[in-house]
Amino acid sequence: MNRSACSRLALGATLSFAAASALAHPGHDAATVGASLWAGVLHPFTGADHLLAMAAVGVWSALGARSAADTLRLPLAFVTLMLVGAALGLAGLALPAVEPMIAASLLVVGVLVAIRAKLPAWAGMAVVGGFAVFHGYAHGAELPGTAAALSAVLAYVGGFAVATMALHLLGIVAGTYLRHRAGWLARVAGAGVALYGASLLVA
């Protein structure tokens, strides 16, 4: 892929990211989902709160990265702790304030993107990892735990883990482009995500 195509991809992803934050609505109420690889892949895309949070983590990671390894720290922390949360949800264990914490993740990560905050690696991983537990719990809790075979459950979990990493990578592409060429657009997108998170908290 040439440089011009990469630029168009990054710009398009960022504009979609900003627009989605203004128009989005949560898509994961109390409804349950089926257990399959495809259901898992689709699930992060059915709720704008999940989608925006995951993309925003990728953007923030790219904006503050000092190296390629730095860029992957936050996404890997998010996916790892998300799987922990999913296990809690699948086990039927209670986790308080799941929806408010998901909304708070949008507010906090959106602000971090908007101000291009640079935190120590451990602090950034703790922030995104803590919120990821609640995102993972929502994924796991929406799957009927007693109605699916173990293989189907594992396929579902693997599906949303792969989809989450893909959203992180899309955010990294956008963030890498914006870091050097259009920092103001990253600030606008981050502010939009933060405002959406605030609106969910108020609602």
Rank of each mutant, 00 (worst) to 15 (best):
L178Q: 12
T46A: 14
A104N: 13
L15V: 14
A56M: 13
A56Y: 08
G34T: 08
L200W: 03
F45C: 03
T46Q: 11
A147E: 13
A53L: 15
A166H: 01
Y137M: 03
Y137A: 04
A163M: 15
L107Q: 04
A18H: 11
H50R: 11
A123F: 14
L88N: 02
H135I: 05
P100L: 08
A77Q: 00
V59Y: 10
P100F: 12
H50L: 09
V128N: 03
F78T: 01
G12F: 10
F17N: 02
L106K: 14
A5C: 05
W184C: 00
A194W: 05
L107G: 13
L83P: 01
S7I: 11
V113T: 07
V157Q: 08
V98A: 13
A166F: 08
R73K: 14
A191D: 04
R8Y: 12
T14C: 14
V111P: 02
H28T: 12
G27K: 04
S67D: 08
L106I: 07
A203G: 15
T80H: 01
V128H: 02
T80N: 06
P100K: 10
L143T: 04
A31G: 09
R73Y: 01
V98C: 10
V127S: 08
A69F: 12
V57T: 11
F134Y: 15
P26K: 09
A191T: 12
L201D: 11
I102F: 07
L52C: 12
A24Q: 05
A191H: 00
Y156N: 06
L185T: 06
V113F: 02
A191Q: 00
L42C: 14
G145W: 04
G124Y: 07
A68I: 11
H28N: 09
G89P: 05
A114Q: 07
A10K: 13
A20P: 01
M1N: 09
F160R: 02
C6W: 14
H28C: 12
